[in-house]
Design a protein around this nucleic acid. Structure first.
Lengths: 203, 203
DNA sequence: GTCTATAAAATGATAGAC
DNA sequence: GTCTATCATTTTATAGAC
């Protein structure tokens, strides 16, 4: 006698986890953390809501897992391009920008969560603070290297310029998401070239 | 015989409305639209939740009223400074930046709502789209005027440069909110001065 | 103008079976 | 690994009294 049809699709935990992360990333990108319900994510995955919570203890652990995974993937992708090769600030930043241009969902996830996480009560509040510091420091180091090679004016303050470039990149992403006609990378490159044109290749 | 103490504080509708708008602006600024409950706002106002909904038909109408009021106040404040006077792009933008620096709550309201409203289902989705277009056009006109006076290089594309400056301003606000040590206006001015240094004051 | 009462729906999470 | 059942809250909104 045949088993009763239950409709369940049982999958390896790892595969299901990946699937959930992908669906959740999209949902959080569109509606934010508070605006996304576990039931909604579960339904899109094709699983019950308690079934979803079997893989992630809570909604908080889910958003953190999503952000950490995507952040790691993204960083690795770009850094891998320049393995051992010498990179200028502009090249490095433009590589990120160009990659972002092909991944609006990812950009949206980080842009929306970034603003939402300004709230100290947001589960990813610390995550975004740390991430921001890390990115600024990375860019500041690239700027210093460029200055040493005479590619950027020594009159530029590395930390301040890094903060400015991170801000511009974030702002351009927001602008691009709101109005996809925005030439995000074109505007960014124009600004970077203007930076390189600042006079004063050492006194 | 004395009337029974009800504990109610009855106020003129207009005054209560203003009070609600002020409290709601703070709440939406911190926790966003989805993250703020009417009960929370009502409690801080010192009124019951249905008492609050007597003044605003719904949560949606409340957030829209908050944004419209603040947007109007802000624009009027800065434009009033330059009544009839000729302003440069840099002066106009720096006036906004300096005012913003004194109003973190206001900046946070618009930064958080701006990102949250990327969601087409957000009540202020259209509001922010229109507002963004309006600001970009205003700045583009200032740039054209500066170019005509020889204060900015004619090689700059007004619309593109306006989009870049709006992006930078928005990004700097986010950066400043996340890390108050950021010298928002200082960084902005540095960038604006760099723009003015672009060579080519007409052929 | 403000309140109490209440509805109606949604949500995050747990218990326990299969 | 996934489900059904269920709970405790929270949340927006309405009805009707004062």
């Amino acid at each position: 006698m045949a088993r009763v049809e239950t409709g369940r699709v049982r999958r390896p935990a790892a595969a299901r986890r990946e699937q959930i992360l992908a669906v959740a990333a999209d949902a959080f990108a569109v509606a934010g953390f508070r605006g996304t319900s576990l039931a909604e994510v579960a339904q899109k995955v094709g699983v019950s809501q308690p079934g979803l919570l079997h893989h992630f203890d809570s909604k908080e652990s889910l958003i953190l897992a999503v952000l950490q995974q995507r952040d790691l993937q993204d960083e690795q992708h770009v850094e891998a391009q320049f393995q051992g090769v010498e990179v200028t600030t502009r090249e490095w930043l433009m590589a990120f920008c160009r990659r972002n241009e092909t991944q609006p969902g990812l950009v949206r996830l980080f842009t929306v969560q970034s603003a939402e996480s300004l709230n100290p009560a947001h589960p990813a509040h610390d995550f975004f603070y740390q991430r921001n510091q890390r990115v600024r420091e990375r860019i500041a180091r690239l700027i210093v290297a460029d200055q040493e090679k005479g590619r950027l004016s020594p009159s530029l303050d590395p930390a301040a310029t890094a903060a400015e470039l991170v801000s511009l990149m974030n702002g351009l992403q927001l602008q691009w998401l709101r109005d996809p006609a925005t030439d995000m990378c074109g505007l960014f490159e124009t600004s970077l070239l203007r930076l390189e044109a600042v006079p004063g290749t050492k006194a």
